[in-house]
Design a protein around this nucleic acid. Structure first.
Length: 690
DNA sequence: CTAGGGTTAG
């Protein structure tokens, strides 16, 4: 391990973060949950730690982590003392105003005291104001302030925190001498700018120049740089070095390592570091839970969270925002509600991030009143909070509310809508038939160079026009876009053609898609449904033939429903559930009942838009129907049903469920692969377009 | 003497 880091770094070319691909795939492929319980087996140490023998452990640092009582500067009449007090109490703006007044005298001023500059630096950092930072530094230079190492480090920090990175870099280079704090400050600043490579190089330089000063703080930065670079290769070298230097029994280093490993796709190594920690604090727990979640192991992550509670560690707002996010991905409302309750109980009910995660969660469950409640109670909101709610309204066919919220947002100063906001509101307009408003917003985007519509916005407009049957306009929009058409745009057109039964254009769009994404099954199925719907049997057979030739097969469709915290899963024609006979009996009754209301089973074959053909011979016992039948017999007659599934609903089920809400007087929410269907009083929030 | 450290969202 004496091999020096510079050569190691040189060997290492263009690192790419290795992430679990399942996270970047479709937005909500939910899964049923089985929470594991954790015995904690000892894991094998990663081999690189065993191999590394040549470094000598350094004498243990005496932990100087004692917390000193901090006292405010005493009240005094002098301007600089007042300034210090203001800065101490976080009144940065006022402190800087006093500084300006102080400068008003002009001419030959004297330097302020070190403590006053300290306070000013804090004020500048608090406001992130580059202008103020520059003028404070200028004042120091102009008045002949005698810089010591401390003051130089403070200025360096001030510049970095105010975003003056290149000035800070120059300052750092020109420093007559640099101590550990100077290096750490500079490296940390570069990390904040996401200049990971430079940060890592600087860390190596520090190791060369003052190796004795590289302590656990520096190591944390080095490891963070590796996290940013996504390089487990470099990260494990640092782990190894830190291990030999005796720096790895530090909670900060351990947490940084856990984060590094999990962000580099090595969850087992992350877990090893975690298991080895003699004392695990909140951050370590939060990091490992987030790590499992990042890798898509949501159940394990939730299981670890329960383990965390058992261990007696106090959960914090980070815990809740992570756990709520996990619950949002899982098909579990009960776990989520408990997390919500715990968050409020422990005094984090006002946390911005956790509340935003809650909005997202409730919207994924179709509980828009709950989402709105959370939003209204939030003491502070950022753009993401607004986006989450606007998007939620859109996904549930509540376009009016989405637009109202969007208008409220644009009237506010301080927050400027971004790409996500626009996409959310355009989708909302489209799904609620507010085409006028949608077109208006789309036009307004194009007028402002900062919000030039992107491909996804065009796709949304294609959807909007297609919904109204304005297929020619939709096609024109695709052709006249300022960039080549994307998959999303053609897919939106294809859906429009299916609903509007436009065979020719549908075929055209489908062929574009087959060429662009030949592996994607749902495209073929949509075309198949178009052909079947218009009785073009031979064309349908052709599509099937092509699919077979390309070796396209799919997982069987399944749906699930949560009853009393237990998920119940159903596949097509499933008879494996213990209550299977009751379920089919109920299903039969309900189908008969809605039959008397005029429901007729859709005669021809109806394919689920994204499931293999051999999986479905008829839609009478599609998994969603089974899940709903089970929900009906196992919950009280007034409670709404929540069904989750990974495939899109077929026409027949969609029609049937609408009528089921009439005869049972229940609300039913189906969260499928592409959207929500909020069935109530015989209608669906999607407006029969999906 | 003071300063620099780890985790979170669409």
């Amino acid at each position: 391990m004496e091999a020096n880091f510079t050569t190691l770094f040189a060997m290492h070319s263009a690192p790419k973060p290795h992430r679990n691909p399942s996270l970047s795939a479709t937005p909500n492929p939910p899964k049923p949950i089985k929470i594991p319980t954790f015995p904690f087996p000892k894991r094998k140490a990663p081999s690189f730690i065993v191999h590394c023998t040549s470094l000598k452990p350094r004498p243990k640092h005496v932990a100087a982590e004692t917390v000193k009582p901090v006292t405010a500067p005493p009240p005094s009449s002098s301007l600089s003392a007042q300034l210090e007090r203001l800065a101490f109490f976080g009144k940065s703006r006022e402190a800087l105003e006093l500084f300006e007044i102080l400068q008003c005298g002009g001419g030959d001023e004297e330097s302020l005291s070190s403590a006053t500059y300290d306070a000013l630096a804090n004020a500048c950092i608090g406001l992130r104001s580059p202008g103020a930072a520059r003028s404070v530094f200028r004042h120091m230079v102009d008045t002949g302030f005698q810089f010591d190492q401390y003051a130089r480090n403070r200025v360096l920090l001030m510049y970095l925190k105010c975003g003056l990175v290149s000035d800070a870099r120059r300052l750092f280079e020109e420093m007559p001498e640099r101590n550990a704090v100077s290096w750490n400050t500079m490296i940390s600043g570069l990390l904040g700018e996401r200049s990971f490579e430079e940060a890592f190089r600087l860390f190596l330089l520090m190791l060369e120049e003052i190796p004795e000063a590289v302590g656990s703080r520096s190591l944390v930065f080095g490891v963070q740089a590796c996290t940013g670079l996504g390089s487990v290769f470099l990260g494990s070298q640092l782990h190894s070095a830190g291990f030999k230097l005796g720096l790895c029994d530090n909670i900060f280093v351990s947490s940084a390592l856990i984060d590094m490993y999990s962000n580099c796709g090595c969850i087992d190594e992350a877990r090893w570091v975690f298991d080895e920690m003699p004392e695990k604090n909140v951050v370590a727990w939060n990091t490992i839970v987030a790590g499992y979640a990042l890798h898509g192991y949501s159940e394990d992550a939730l299981g670890l969270y329960y383990e965390m509670q058992k261990s007696g560690v106090r959960t914090d707002q980070f815990t809740y925002s992570t756990v709520i996010r996990i619950c949002a991905r899982l098909g579990s409302l009960e776990h989520a509600k408990q997390a919500h309750a715990g968050m409020v109980r422990n005094g984090y009910g006002a946390d911005l991030v956790a509340n935003t995660a809650l909005i997202d969660l409730y919207r994924k469950w179709g509980r828009m009143e709950d989402a709105r409640n959370v939003f209204d109670r939030m003491p502070r909101r950022n753009l993401r909070s607004w986006n989450a709610l606007i998007g939620g309204y859109g996904a549930h066919g509540m376009g009016e509310e989405a637009v109202a919220l969007f208008d409220r947002l644009t009237e506010k100063k301080g927050l400027v809508p971004n790409q996500v906001t626009f996409l959310a509101v355009l989708n909302a307009c489209s799904s609620s038939g507010l085409s006028g408003k949608g077109l208006e917003i789309f036009k307004s985007m194009a007028e402002d160079p900062r919000t030039k519509p992107r491909a996804m916005h065009f796709a949304s407009m294609v959807d909007l026009l297609g919904r109204e049957g304005r297929l020619d306009e939709a096609l024109d929009l695709i052709k006249n876009a300022p960039f080549p058409p994307t998959e999303n745009m053609w897919a939106a057109l294809l859906t429009a053609c299916r609903v509007n039964e436009n065979l020719e254009l549908g075929k055209f769009a489908a062929e574009k898609l087959f060429w662009m994404e030949p592996e994607k099954l749902s495209n073929y199925i949509v075309l198949l449904n178009i052909y079947n719907g218009s009785g073009r049997v031979s064309d349908a057979a052709n599509v099937l033939e092509v699919m077979k030739r390309r070796g396209l097969r799919l997982l069987p469709a399944c749906s699930w429903i949560e009853v009393k915290k237990q998920p119940h899963e159903f596949a097509f024609g499933d008879t494996s559930h213990p209550k299977s006979s009751e379920i089919y009996k109920k299903l039969g009754e309900v189908m008969e009942e809605i039959g008397t209301l005029g429901y007729a089973h859709g005669g021809g074959e109806c394919f689920l838009p994204d499931v293999g053909v051999e999986e479905q011979r008829g839609s009478e016992c599609h998994s969603e129907k089974l899940a709903i039948a089970f929900g009906l017999i196992s919950t009280s007659s007034s409670s709404p049903l929540q069904v989750v599934q990974g495939h899109r609903v077929c026409d027949d089920c969609h029609g049937a469920i609408k009528m089921v809400t009439v005869v049972t007087k229940r609300a039913i929410v189906v969260r499928d692969a592409s959207r929500f269907h909020h069935f109530r009083h015989g209608a669906c929030s999607c407006g029969d377009y999906w």
